[in-house]
Amino acid sequence: MELTIVLTIAAILFGIGIYGVLGQTNLVMIMMGVELMLGAAMLNLVAFWRFMHPQTFSLQMFVLVIMTVMALEAAVGFGIATQRFRSKGSVESEEASDLKG
């Protein structure tokens, strides 16, 4: 029962994250949506560790890897955003159609 509760919370967070990624126009806001989705994934992993395999620490290690991925996603995303803003003056996804081949 507890596991289902946590998984439901994580699923709702994941849904909000998907809305953010699809519905927001700004690159930084899209990254926020991705962060929410990754947070939901971490929540799932910790729930599986706590309620199903408390002796398996690969799960906790996987959470650490996801935290790393969050930080990296932010770093590379901001790098791209900085360059885009410098050359085009905007990081709106609506105005990024010139990236199409």
Binding site: L7, A10, A11, I12, F14, G15, I16, G17, I18, Y19, L22, G23
Partner: peptide, 8 residues
């Protein structure tokens, strides 16, 4: 968002 959330 709602469909994916509901599926999960």
């Amino acid at each position: 968002g709602m469909i994916v959330g509901a599926l999960v």
